[in-house]
């Protein structure tokens, strides 16, 4: 039981991170119908930006309050990651809009390879560990020496995720940007005729997705305390799995899917086999797509004859 609760807490933390990345996939898929293969690597890039910013803030500026430092890192990482994703869309995807369907996908794969190797070349191939940041824990249960703990950093991750999601939910549900997004999603040409700046809307979608990925990147760095250039692909695939499981195109679905994937991964590692945890994630992806392609909260697609 205590192991179960501990894993539940760990799973929800990990799931929050996946959920944040998954939103980027789901929004881009919703608006231009493309799987942004490079999104996982954008997340990886954001964790490096966060790492560098954190080092600058703590060593050069000498800020000692960890919360202030984290807040600065969060804002800076969101800014630079958004800029990166904006540039990626501008360079690699926009020229291919309305072209051959395979082209943007290949372009995205190329971009993913480029980003991972760019970071490898510019930052080196080794793991980059940061000193543990928030180390305090709350002991929830103590059962003959097995302590069920809730770390403060887990609290931070879940709270930040929840707050950002609410803000983001407001943005896409209640503002004109959200309306424009949904209009472009439904019918790009018609939206353009009605005066919506389509390019602008799509760019903003990429920016928002990247900002949330950056939050995930900061949280990931804080939680695991390490950044590595190859850490984009697998979290990216898992987040994509989350988006598919929740129903691609659905924002609450992405979060729900993220939490589920986090829980499944953690419980699988705890109770079955840690070696095969990635196999589990990939299998869930395949099984979901094959048997339930509309996901948990998505709309079913009817074949038109």
């Amino acid at each position: 039981m205590d192991v179960f609760i501990q894993q539940l807490i760990n799973g929800l933390t990990l799931g929050s991170i996946y959920g944040l990345i998954a939103i980027g996939y789901t929004m881009v898929f919703g608006i231009i119908g493309m799987v942004n293969f490079a999104h996982g690597d954008v997340f990886m890039v954001s964790s490096f930006i966060a790492l560098i910013c954190f080092l600058l803030v703590t060593t050069v500026l000498g800020i000692t309050s960890i919360f202030l430092a984290l807040a600065i890192v969060l804002v800076v990482a969101m800014f630079f990651t958004s800029l990166t994703n904006w540039a990626i869309e501008r360079v690699a995807y926009r020229p291919l809009r309305g072209s051959f369907r395979l082209a943007p996908m290949i372009s995205a794969i190329g971009m993913s390879i480029f980003l991972a190797n760019f970071v490898q070349v510019s930052q080196g191939p080794r793991n980059k560990p940061v000193p543990p940041m928030v180390t305090d824990v709350i002991v929830l249960m103590d059962n003959n020496g097995y302590q069920v703990t809730l770390a403060w950093k887990q609290v931070i991750i879940m709270v930040v995720t929840a707050v950002l999601l609410m803000g983001f939910w407001y943005l896409v549900q209640k503002t004109s940007l959200g309306r424009a997004q949904r209009a472009v999603e439904q019918d790009r040409k018609m939206a353009a005729l009605l005066g919506i700046n389509v390019d602008h809307t799509i760019s903003l979608t990429f920016v928002i997705g990247a900002a949330l990925a950056a939050v995930a990147g900061v949280m990931y760095l804080m939680y695991y305390g390490v950044a590595h250039f190859a850490d984009g692909f697998v979290p990216g695939v898992k987040a994509f799995t989350a988006a598919v499981l929740g129903g691609i195109g659905s924002l609450p679905g992405a979060v729900l899917g993220g939490l589920l994937i986090g829980l499944i991964e953690v419980f699988w590692s705890a109770y079955f086999s840690i070696e095969y945890k990635d196999v589990a994630a990939f299998s869930i992806l395949a099984i979901t797509l094959i048997f339930m392609p509309q996901g948990l909260l998505g709309r079913p697609e009817v074949e038109k004859v």
């Binding site: 020229p95 290949i106 390879i113 991972a116």
Partner: peptide, 13 residues
Amino acid sequence: MLIFGFAMVAIMV
């Protein structure tokens, strides 16, 4: 691989 990735994007565009 850096150049390979970049070339994939460039060729598609």
